[in-house]
């Protein structure tokens, strides 16, 4: 059993309409690579040319923004839930 990743609607075209996918990975960078193997094209949507997370993409591990953790180096394990969420306007 791998890590569960929640896929937001704008990315579901790439994941064949799946709203959750499972991947085996030890950190987020690996996770993105593993997803790219299953769903070609997903990586460029998340990661910019410099290898950083795109400006308007937020990733959460068990509800915590990874920018408060170790970014793409954040470790993940099988029971974790990862969410990919586009930036949202204010309220």
């Amino acid at each position: 059993m791998g890590v569960t990743v929640r896929i937001p609607a704008p990315l579901r075209r790439v994941t064949n309409d799946q709203d959750r996918v499972e991947v085996d990975a030890e950190n987020l960078a690996d996770m993105v690579d593993a997803m790219e193997e299953q769903f070609p094209g997903i990586k460029e949507r998340l990661i910019d040319e410099t290898g950083s997370l795109r400006h308007f993409v937020n990733i959460y591990v068990n509800g915590e923004d990874v920018q408060f953790l170790q970014g793409l180096e954040t470790a993940i394990k099988a029971s974790d839930e990862v969410s990919i969420v586009p930036a949202v306007a204010g309220g």
Partner: peptide, 22 residues
């Protein structure tokens, strides 16, 4: 608020509602 926002982003993908700021 940032937690609320994350939750709402997930709900907005699930329910057919007009989230004004999503």
């Amino acid at each position: 608020y940032d937690d609320v926002n994350r939750l709402c982003s997930e709900l907005a993908d699930t329910y057919p509602w007009a989230f004004v700021n999503i």
